[in-house]
């Protein structure tokens, strides 16, 4: 576990540094509120209400597809690390695995899941 000590040090240090940096304006800068300034910035038009509403389902689809293929990538890492020991058998195994996921990729492309919103 001693490998990770530098990372712990860095996380604490960078956390402090980032807090200091982001609070610099609060400490050094002015603070003045006006009604116009307090509106959400929508290019000068009067705001049409809160932004926390619904947005296109396409973005959820991208997220779900990401999970499927990212898990694939995660599985490939240990395989790549010990590929020399696995030899030809490992190659065929991974060919089958990648093949199945490629069928999935072709399916989502044909289905139009990645078309413009």
């Amino acid at each position: 576990m001693t490998q990770y000590i530098p990372i712990l040090i860095a996380v604490v240090l960078c956390g402090l540094l980032a807090t200091l940096m982001t609070s610099a304006s609060r400490l050094l800068g002015p603070s003045k509120h006006t009604p116009v300034k307090d509106e959400p910035f929508e290019c000068g038009n009067p705001s049409s209400g809160s932004a926390w509403g619904r947005f296109s389902v396409k973005f959820y689809l991208a997220a779900i597809l990401f999970i499927v293929f990212d898990v694939e990538v995660v599985f490939l890492y240990p395989w790549a690390r010990i590929f020399r020991q696995l030899g030809f058998f490992g190659f065929i195994e991974m060919l089958v695995f990648i093949g199945i996921l490629t069928v999935g990729l072709v399916y989502i492309i044909k289905k139009g899941a990645l078309e413009a919103v």
Binding site: P40, F41, E42, S50, A51, W52, F55, F59, A62, A63, F66, F69, D70, V73
Partner: peptide, 22 residues
């Protein structure tokens, strides 16, 4: 931020970053 531009930018950024991460 509760701002439409910010929300759109955030969603676009996440879709883009996760797509290219693979």
């Amino acid at each position: 931020s509760n701002n439409r531009w910010a929300l759109l930018g955030g969603i676009r950024a996440s879709a883009q970053m996760i797509s290219y991460e693979i």
